[in-house]
Simulated scan of single mutants.
Amino acid sequence: MSLVEISDADGVRTITVNRPDAYNSLNRGLRLALIDAFTTAGEDAATGGPVRTVVLQAEGKAFCSGQDLKEQLADAREGTGSNKVVEEYNPMMAALLSIPVPVIAAVQGPAAGAGWGIAMACDFRVMSSAASFKGAFSGVGLASDCGLSRSLTDTVGQTRALELLLFDEKIPAEKAAALGIVTTVVEPGQLAESVAALAQRFAAGPTASYREIKALVKDAAAVNARADEEGDAQLRLFTTADHVEALSAFLEKRPPRFIGE
């Protein structure tokens, strides 16, 4: 079974994350598969070919729960994977941000950590009323990644972004709509239809115009630059006592005991 499924129909490229048993958490295989999928979508959309809009969706209950914490704990214990933000996450986000046509995230379930960052890097977010967002960074003793500190600030402002990331509370769909984080919220049974209608609207529209407008409105370079800074912060925090404690507490199903180091 492929970790990422890709299909084309009527000008719409659909990219489906397919790791539902792990809540679509991002292990190395999935990160590399998404780099390939986003890169190919960007190339196909830039050439004036059949890709006129892109839908990013996921199988199962979760949109994406972020970093695979079992992989993260193994990396922390073995001293491996410390550069994965720079070597894998940031290229994944750069590829997503480089897609020149409208990109729609169909958020059917929880999107946490990098999963939220991926959704925020898309141009439009259609959200099920059963879905939610969560930073899940400070709770495990890390900084944000995937350029989320920039894309979220651009959307809700500095003070509210800081509040959302530091308090690290779940953001239900209704609150996400009130904050302007999502394009629309629909009932779970209406999500596929709503996303398809929006995608077809873009696919039938003036694609060259959309490409130019998107390039003018979205500052992909700024998000990528912030993702680089986040990568440096992640590297500094990767081996801290608080991060290792947070991962151990998660797997042992107990509250973490942070010491501030």
Rank of each mutant, 00 (worst) to 15 (best):
P91F: 00
S98V: 03
A111N: 01
G117T: 02
K70E: 14
Q108M: 14
G113E: 04
P110V: 01
R77S: 11
W116K: 07
W116F: 15
P102H: 10
S144Y: 08
F63P: 13
T80W: 05
V103P: 02
V86T: 05
I104T: 08
V85F: 11
V86K: 08
G60Y: 10
K70Q: 13
G66A: 05
P102D: 06
L148D: 08
L96C: 00
G60P: 09
A111H: 00
G79I: 10
M92Q: 05
A119W: 01
A74I: 05
A112H: 09
E59P: 03
A94P: 02
S144F: 09
S129D: 10
C122W: 02
I104K: 13
A106P: 09
S65K: 12
D145M: 11
Y89S: 06
G79A: 06
S129P: 02
M92A: 04
T80H: 09
A130W: 10
G135Q: 03
I104H: 12
E88Y: 09
V86M: 07
A114F: 08
N83S: 12
N90I: 13
A74C: 04
V85M: 11
N90T: 10
V103A: 02
F133A: 08
G147Y: 02
E71H: 11
G79W: 09
L142S: 10
Q72N: 08
A114V: 14
V85S: 10
L73C: 03
S82R: 13
L97W: 05
Q108S: 15
L73Q: 11
A95V: 00
A62V: 12
G66Q: 07
A143V: 10
A114H: 07
L73M: 10
A114S: 14
A111F: 00
R77N: 14
Q108C: 10
L96T: 01
L142W: 03
G141T: 02
S82D: 13
K84V: 09
Q72C: 06
S129Q: 03
G60W: 09
E78H: 08
G79T: 06
V101Q: 01
G147V: 01
A131I: 10
G109Y: 04
A136V: 05
A130F: 03
C146R: 08
M93Q: 12
A121T: 12
K61G: 05
C146Y: 14
S128N: 11
V86N: 05
P100H: 02
E59C: 09
G81Y: 09
D68F: 07
A112W: 11
L96S: 03
G141E: 00
A131H: 12
W116S: 05
C122P: 07
A94V: 03
A94E: 13
Y89W: 15
A121P: 05
G113T: 04
G79S: 03
E78D: 14
F63Q: 14
A143M: 06
T80D: 08
M92S: 00
A112F: 07
A76Q: 12
K61L: 13
A114M: 12
F137Y: 15
A119R: 07
I104R: 14
A136Q: 06
R77H: 07
V86E: 08
D68I: 12
G113S: 15
M93T: 10
